[in-house]
């Protein structure tokens, strides 16, 4: 007979190991809050000696691509724990009681592990939406409320770390929200963070400071995910383009990149995407990109690009 209870943790989501984690680039206050949490977890014994426990649950809110998943994974990796990335599809069922039961099974399965598992709930709003009292569809409402109650009870008994992420904090049931002792809003990155994000994802290529400044300014309101795509697509072009015989002049590359990497229509349009080549950040981008800052010609001299065409290269005074 087919087993009806999925016992394996893997059946509830993906297990991510510490090795695969990377560190998110975040604003100072957020980093401070996270560092505080880590220190607290590591001071577990000292806290317990005075009858306190470290906080165990956090909820991250923020628009897609701001690093919620990346951050949770980083935390798990700092602690040295595997992270179970729970996706909500597993808990959606049109059958009465099935979702609540699956949630119960997940927590039981997590509790049964010898090594603690860092739990990460992605798109938590679809699992923990507010309880309903409309009375329109009683069966569905009761079922959902039952699911929330199971979730509350499970969270109360859970003795490992759990992080939930959502793009819609306001949709989360209040009682569930209260179970999360740390609430962190991951906003779009500020100026300094954007510069660091560009540096990270352009690496091994390096940009002179004025080019970074311009690009970072032109990308205000962009998410880290979008910036990463932009940088990586430029790097891909640099590698593939010459082999494929594409036009590798700066403008041609930028046009291709800006055409294929685009912000979500709901997110604000960063300046670079509204002005495109007319944006001064494009003119400030030295070309071809170098892996060493000394390899760029003196800022005042006109620079020759890959195809030998001289492009205007006038940094604004800074």
């Amino acid at each position: 007979m087919v087993s009806r209870v999925p016992q394996r943790l893997e059946s509830f989501g993906d297990i991510l190991t510490p090795e695969e984690a990377s560190e998110p680039i975040l604003a100072a206050p957020v980093r401070a809050a996270l560092m505080e949490w880590l220190e607290e977890i590591w001071a577990k014994d000292e806290l317990e000696a005075v009858g306190l426990k470290p906080r165990r649950r956090a909820i991250f809110t923020g628009i897609p691509g701001t690093g919620k998943t990346t951050l949770a994974h980083h935390l798990a990796a700092r602690l040295g724990l595997p992270m179970l990335l729970v996706r909500p599809e597993q808990f959606l069922s049109e059958y009465v009681g099935a979702s609540a039961r699956a949630i119960g099974q997940l927590f039981q399965c997590v509790q049964a592990q010898e090594t603690p598992v860092f739990l990460f709930f992605d798109e938590f709003d679809s699992m923990a939406a507010k309880r309903m009292t409309g009375g329109k569809n009683q069966v569905a409402e009761q079922d959902h409320n039952h699911q929330i109650n199971t979730l509350l009870k499970s969270l109360d008994t859970l003795d490992t770390f759990a992080v939930a992420a959502t793009n819609f904090g306001d949709r989360i049931d209040e009682a569930v929200w209260r179970r999360f002792e740390i609430q962190i809003d991951l906003a779009a990155p500020g100026d300094a963070e954007r510069r660091r994000i560009l540096e990270r994802y352009f690496a091994p290529f390096m940009l002179p400071r004025f080019a970074l400044d311009e690009l970072s300014e032109a990308m205000a309101t962009a998410t880290p995910a979008l910036m990463r795509q932009f940088c990586e697509h430029i790097k891909r072009q640099i590698i593939v383009g010459p082999k494929a015989n594409w036009d590798m002049r700066r403008e041609a590359v930028l046009v291709r990149v800006l055409e294929t990497v685009k912000p979500h229509p709901d997110a604000g349009l960063p300046r670079l995407w509204s002005r495109k080549l007319d944006d001064r950040a494009c003119a400030a981008l030295p070309w071809p990109l170098q892996k060493n800052l000394d390899a760029y010609p003196e800022p005042s001299a006109p620079a020759a690009d890959a195809s030998g065409v001289v492009t205007d290269f006038k940094p604004r005074g800074r």
Binding site: T17, P82, E114, T115
Partner: peptide, 17 residues
């Protein structure tokens, strides 16, 4: 025996390389 309940993936993930 405790190990029986362990998910092998978790065990592997938690095992320092």
């Amino acid at each position: 025996p405790k190990a029986a309940a362990q998910s092998s993936a978790v065990q592997q993930a938690a095992q320092p390389r």
